[in-house]
Every structure is written in C-alpha cells, then in structure tokens.
Design a protein around this nucleic acid. Structure first.
Lengths: 210, 210
DNA sequence: CCCTGATCGTGACAAATGTCACACAGGCGG
DNA sequence: CCGCCTGTGTGACATTTGTCACGATCAGGG
C-alpha cells in the first residue's frame, strides 16, 4: 500500500463490512491497490458497519450478509429507511434467490458472489458509483423464480426444528400449543415437498428462505 | 503494493489455494504487499493446488479446507506421503477440534482462522518458514479435548440422517436393516448427548466430526 | 486363546412426529 | 359486508423415531 493516490480523479470512498478479519483485511488490500479507491473504514459486524457508514458517508458500502449483531441486509434496509445515498454492494458466499430478492428490495445496487474473480470487485465498485447496477449474471435470471412460500410463523418454527429443537420445546419457546407447531411443520413440509422437518429445513436454507 | 521488494533477504515463495475467487485474489493481494513474500501460484480447488505445489515447490502452501475436488487436508496428507518439504498452513473458517487434529496429523505447520486479524497471516508465513508452528491459541488448548467418539458407521449414518434422509432410506442406501440404522442413530445420539438425530448431526458437525 | 469392540440383526415398547379434519378469531381486499 | 388467508387450537390416527435387551459374527490385541 502507500502508493500515493493517483490524484487525477476524485477518489471513490468505500466502507467495507465483513466478519472474518482475514477476509476483511484482504479485501481492503485488494481495493487499496487500485489507485482510484480508498477504504475509509472497516467494520466487523452490522452495527459497527451502520455507524461507520453514517459517520463517513462513503460513496459505496460493501457488505457481507451473515454477520453478528446485524445482517448486511438489515443494514441496507436501515440505510434506505434513512434515505442515505451511499450505494450498497452485497458481497456474499450464497447464491440464493431469496437473498438477492431481499437485497434488491432493500435498495442494494450490487449483489456479488465471493467466488467471482477478484478483479471484478473494483470494477463493480466503479460501476455502482456511476449509478449502474451490478448483479451476478447467473442469479439475475434465476432470481425471479419461486418466491418464498412460507409464512413468518412457518419460517420461525422451521428454523428451530432444523436445529433439532423438539416440537414441545418450540411450543414453549413461542408460547403456542404443541399441536399448532406440528401443524405448521406439516404445512411447511408439504409446501417444500420434503419428507420430514429436517429435509424441509435443509431445502429452505438452500433457497435462502430461512 | 509495488514497494520494491526489500531484496536484502531471499523472498518467501508461497502458493495459495482457496475456492472463493474473491477471497483468493484478496489474500494474494494482502501477501504481495509484504516485501518479502511472493505468491508464485494460486489454485481454486484441491487438485489444482496439489499440481501447483508439486510444480513450484514453494516454501509455504496456504490452503482452505473445504474445496472442490480435494480437501485442503487431503492435499496436506498427499504432500506428506510424498515427503515434500513445503510447509503447510491451513486457513479456514472453522474452529473445529476435529479439523485441527486432522491437520496436525497431516503434518501441517499452521492452523489459522479466517477471523483472525489480517496482519497475522504474513507473520504466520514468516514463522512457519522458519520452522515454527503457528496454531490459533484458542483452539490449541481445546484441541486435545475430546476425540471423536463415533465409529465410521455411526458417522456415515448420522451424516445422512442430518440431511433429513429417513431411517428406511438410509437402510436401503447402505444395504442394512432399518432396525440397525435406528440402533446406530440411538448410539450416536447418546454419545453426543443430543435429544434426537437432528441435534446430534448439528453437534457432530460443529465439532468437525462429520 | 480369550476379551474387546465394531458390525449387524430382532423384537418390543414408548415417545415424537406427520397428517387430517375441523373450528374460530382477526384482518384485508373487493 | 363477504370471502379468504393467516394464525391458532383440538382430537384422532398412522408412521417414524428413539430406547432397550439380547444375540451372532469377526478382527485384533494381549
């Protein structure tokens, strides 16, 4: 690092959020070697990220989805709610239609997968800063496939069941009757075409619905 | 980057393997900015990594565990079998005692977690090249805790059950009787102190036993 | 050669799970 | 205001799952 910024054009100011320190530092290094991009702050969880973006008002905010404290998607929603004009790029491992849809609903300008070529990140930052959208091509087509068929309750119940929590325990947790839980699970299982709660949870997770 | 290599000392030659292109490129960028380290090859799966290490004979080989084609651990085992003297650093997301143990058995010199600080990677490379071991401190203590209590069959059955496959289907898959499957699962559940197959699978996965 | 542990099997029983049919409230769109 | 959907509940029933007790075989170690 420490290349003197090629000061010809205005620098693109970026904040990055990512919970794995190694990846965070590496991504920052990757962007810093581009002369026209400056990483003005880094965050290792959602709340920190939100504070950083509000404080620095960067041009572009790059964020992972699954982080402690607050999800990258939640941060995007909050920025939208506050009408901030920082553009958001979601950078995640998961090629899940459900995530992409939620990202777009939250007003994100980009949705990139971590297994794309590293060179594309800086390019995406530039495109997004110019007001363009950058969506992973494979996902873009598939995305408007099936919408999440689950209701909130079903999702909530299925999440617990998928971790091995017992129907009775779920009922107590949520203050419902055990029969009701079994009904929800039965519903979810049939909606997802699964054979049992475990498979149902696996399917839902794979689609990004959980 | 582009600091002119401090050519006083010999460069440390490194090969990196990681299936997520973005992370791979970023890690390479991170190491390249260190004057004394050169990334001589990158690989995006296990087989490619093995070939790259054999071809370049680097001082240090940094690898992820979960990759297509061949696991980072498998690559390490193969290098050990061939008595190669490239030092191996495992760099993974998972703080699992089972993984660490297997890594050490495979002769790895380092086991780092992706959520450590980015600066520690280059430092680890230098230490390892000098013949030292670098193990994540938290793990180091815990590692020699509990060994995997499961037998091969139990592991195999539990893996399927954890994906929602039915006892009967597992039985057919493995050519065993359904009762036997239930026995194995019951055994596994009790060994792991779980309440049911789903929780048992979750626990086993978390420990790196699956 | 005996002991142990892993593997595979049976049978029986209890508990959890999955399915169905049905019921009643509240909310929302037409 | 009338349906319709979601959320919630009940009861009954079939199936799956989890547990136990018992055996039989086989390989390896002492």
């Amino acid at each position: 690092m420490n290349t003197i910024p090629k000061t010809g054009r205005k620098q693109i100011r970026v904040v990055i959020a990512e919970d794995q320190g190694m990846v965070l530092g590496a991504l920052a290094a990757l962007l810093e070697i581009e002369g026209d991009i400056t990483v003005v702050a880094r965050a290792r969880n959602g709340k920190e990220a939100l504070r950083a973006v509000l404080a620095h008002k960067p041009d572009v905010f790059i964020t992972d989805i699954e982080m402690p404290e607050m999800t990258g998607l939640d941060v995007a929603v909050e920025l939208k709610r506050q009408h901030k004009d920082t553009r958001v790029i979601i950078l995640t491992t998961f090629a899940r239609a459900g995530y992409l849809r939620r990202a777009l609903d939250a007003g994100a300008s980009g949705y990139l997968l971590k297994d794309m070529r590293a060179e594309e990140l800086a390019e995406a930052v530039r495109r997004v800063q110019q007001g363009l959208r950058v969506i992973d091509p494979e996902l873009a087509t598939e995305a408007w496939g099936e919408p999440d068929p689950l209701t909130d309750r079903e999702r909530q119940v299925l999440r617990l069941a998928g971790d091995g929590v017992t129907s009775l325990d779920i009922a107590n947790d949520l203050g419902l009757s055990e029969g009701t839980i079994r009904n929800y699970l039965s519903e979810a299982i049939s909606k997802l075409g699964a054979a049992n709660r475990t498979e149902a949870a696996r399917i839902a997770r794979a689609k990004g619905w959980l």
